[in-house]
Structures are given as structure tokens and as C-alpha cells.
Design a protein around this nucleic acid. Structure first.
Lengths: 231, 231
DNA sequence: CCGCATCCGTTTCGATACTG
DNA sequence: CAGTATCGAAACGGATGCGG
């Protein structure tokens, strides 16, 4: 039985034929952070039935976006991870996330929060058109979710090839020893700053926004995360 | 009767809650080019039943991504068009398309081709990380689909705000009087050049790729469309 | 416990026919 | 032209079971 297809010779619908199914992109989102076991994925995706999860993983494997890897004996048996082609979905996920950020104004309590997804969320908060031309490391301390390291890489790759913004930056959980900038605040404040609903100066004087590091780098980091640097 | 939701406080899944339904993004894709009537949309989306189309349009209207507009008396009654918020989906569609371009290597005859979608397809072909810092107009003559005008705007908007690449460029059907660059070739050749499956120099000497205009601008246009400028 | 497989009620989708 | 109405097929969601 041929799977559903839009049957158009168009890049958008051909992409949707592969990844437009329900749960497919959320699964890829979770795999973006790193390899995951079946049960790890289930934990981060409540509401997704196990049969559907295995269906999706098999489909993704069949089209070459995901592969299974065996782990050495002491650890758990196998993990699912993205292939390079699967990682090519990162810009898609991030753009979707950037569209979705504006929907996050009210953290309804009917919506669950999963810490594993914070790195991807932080990446979507970043406005890549404000990335500085230089490299830098920003430690973002989300008071309600812990420390994360946001890294900005070079503008060009080997042989002078320009890099896409999404290839220039990444987020990993945990602190960094060599951060150029430290940024401390809560998730909600970060979101509200982005919407312009809060004044950064007020937050700083209220002790709810902490900024440290070289002023130029700090200012750049603020603009990347959606607000004007105070003072 | 609440619609299906991923129920996560995550920008990606909240975006998918709005636009992750089947046919939703293809509808938005067609509206990106301009306002469309009900029947126009149907023509470009075969396989989409009319009841589902109206369902999707009503949903999109309810969440503020699409609005109905009445046309002046002589013309047809009403059209559907994107709101500014709906237009914010353009980067999502384009990234999906960029992922999908690599799937277009073989134009299977089970896949239909709709001329109305060519402007969006052309935009997805463009590698925005290669956009030059200057403004320019490129007329792309697809020998099998007609002329299109690809415009590159300024790097910064009013007040010095940097613009996202997708906000810097656009495609309209038809030729341009003030094109800086002319690029003539078939859709298939364009796709194959992008994949590196063809040598641009061969195509030029074979008369299947025509390039005109200021050499620097031509070279830039070639890189944007995925191949090294010949000579 | 992990990694699924099976079963089953509900929702959504797709195709066709019909109406103002 | 712009939808409604109907209905069978497919997809989804939840619960349960089961071997390693």
C-alpha cells in the first residue's frame, strides 16, 4: 500500500511526503539533540503510541533520515540517531520553532514541559540575522531550567564557503568554562523580552536579568535573543 | 471536540499544532504567491477534497493566518489571502522546500506539475547564504516554464535592522525590464547543476545555459542557484 | 525494565455526489 | 463558482500483552 503522497513535483510537497506525517518532526526534533533510545523518545513524546513511534522510526530509517546504532555491551542495546541527511532537517525545525515562539506567550498548565527539548527551544529563540560576524560563547542560565551553552562559530567554512546561520550556532546543555558572555534569567522573562513586553533595564535593576562579559559581546548576545541591550 | 494537539510547551510542536495538519502548508504555499479564490486553490491541489479545503481555510482564518477579502464588483466574489502573521510561514515553507529539492532528481511522471508553484520552487532553489551584499535583479528564463524575476533587496531595513535572507529576496512571474542578470536554462538542468551532476561549462557550450550581464553579478547569481560560474 | 506487537474504538482523510 | 453532504478507508491514540 503506497503511503499517502501529495503527488506534486514540488520541493515543498515532496519534503512533506517524507516528514509531514504526524509526530515525524517532533521525533526528529528530539533526535537533533543526540541519539535516543526507544524509551527515551517515548518519554519525551507522551500521547505518541508505541506502535506509531516504531512505524515512524521505520519510515525514517527506510528513507535514510534515521539509523539504528548498537551501543557497546555495558550500555543499553540500541539507539536511534539522525543520519547527515536527517540533520538537514534542522533548519526546517528551527524555522518552525521561530514561527511557534510567538505562540508561547502564556505557559498554559495543560502543556507539558520537557527539559530535553530546551536546547532546541533556545536555538529557536535566537534570531540568526543578528548573529555577529565574530565567534563567541554565551552561557545562558535559565533560572528555571539550568545552564546552557550557546556557541557561535565562524561565518565561513573550509575553502571560504559561507555557512548558513543555522550551521554557525548550536546549543548544548550545561555550563561552559570559556564563555565570553553570561546571561541569566528565567524562560518566561526571555520570552517576554523577545516580545517587547518587558523592559530589559527594569529586569536588570530588579535583579531578574544578569549580564556579564565584554560589553560589545553582551550587546550582541542580547540582540540575538531578541531584546535591546540595557544601557 | 478540541483539535488534536501535541500538548507540549515547545515552539516546534506549538507551531505544528497550528500548521501541521495535512494540506495546511501546501495551501499556505499557494497563498504565498498571492491571493487565491477557492477554485484556484482546488486546481493547484488535486487530491484535496473540497470539504477538507474549506475546513483548512476556516481553521487558518480562525487562528489569524488567512483572511477573506472581497473583490470589487466586476471581479469574482472573494479571495483568500495570507495575513502578515501567515506570511511569517514563508521561511518555514522555504526551508522545507530546500530540504525537498534534493528529492527532485527524477521528475517521475506520476507527479503533477503546476506552473503557479514555480515562483516558490525557484525561491527554494536559491541558497540564501550565497546572496551578495548588493541588490540585484535576475531574470530566470526557465525554457520549460517561462520567465521569472528574482529580486535581491538590501541587507538592512529601516533603522538599520538586519533583514533575514528570506526577507531580502522574492520571485515574481514574468520578465523584468531592469534585470542586471539574465539566466536561461531548463528546470531539469537547474536542478542537476545544483546537485553537481552537470558541468556548467558544458551546458554553456552546448547552448543549453545562457548567461548575460555584468560578470560579477552573473557569478553571484550562479552561486545563489547552486553552481560555480563557468569561466 | 526495555523494545516492541496486537487489538480496538475514535478521528481524520479522500472520493464522489449534490446544491444554492 | 463556492461550497455541503455522505460514506468507506486509512490513520491515529490508548490499553494491554509478551519475550528478552
Amino acid at each position: 500500500m503506497a503511503p499517502r503522497s501529495y503527488r506534486q513535483f514540488c520541493p515543498v510537497t515532496m519534503a512533506l511526503d517524507q516528514v509531514g506525517g504526524r509526530w515525524t518532526l517532533p521525533i526528529v526534533r528530539d533526535l537533533l539533540v543526540g541519539p535516543r533510545r526507544f524509551t527515551d523518545l517515548r518519554r519525551g513524546l507522551p500521547g505518541l503510541a508505541p506502535n506509531l513511534l516504531i512505524d515512524r522510526l521505520r519510515e525514517l530509517e527506510a528513507i535514510g533520515l534515521v539509523e539504528r546504532a548498537e551501543l557497546p555491551p555495558p550500555a543499553a542495546r540500541q539507539v536511534y540517531r539522525l543520519t547527515p541527511r536527517g540533520r538537514a532537517l534542522e533548519p526546517v525545525i528551527l524555522e518552525l520553532g521561530r514561527f511557534g515562539v510567538d505562540l508561547m506567550d502564556r505557559p498554559s498548565d495543560s502543556l507539558e514541559i520537557f527539559p530535553e527539548q530546551t536546547p532546541v527551544a533556545l536555538l529557536t529563540f535566537a534570531r540568526t540575522e543578528f548573529l555577529p560576524p565574530w565567534e563567541m560563547v554565551v552561557q545562558v542560565d535559565l533560572t528555571d531550567r539550568g545552564p546552557f551553552t550557546f556557541s557561535v562559530g565562524p561565518t565561513h567554512g573550509p575553502e571560504g564557503i559561507p555557512l548558513r546561520p543555522s550551521d554557525r550556532c548550536g546549543v548544548t546543555p550545561g555550563p561552559s568554562q570559556e564563555a565570553d558572555v553570561h546571561l541569566g534569567l528565567s524562560t518566561i522573562h526571555l520570552l517576554q523580552l523577545r516580545q517587547g513586553a518587558l523592559d530589559p533595564t527594569d529586569l536588570v535593576s530588579g535583579g531578574e536579568l544578569h549580564l556579564h562579559g565584554d560589553p560589545t559581546a553582551v550587546a550582541s548576545a542580547c540582540r540575538v535573543f531578541g531584546f535591546e541591550p540595557p544601557d
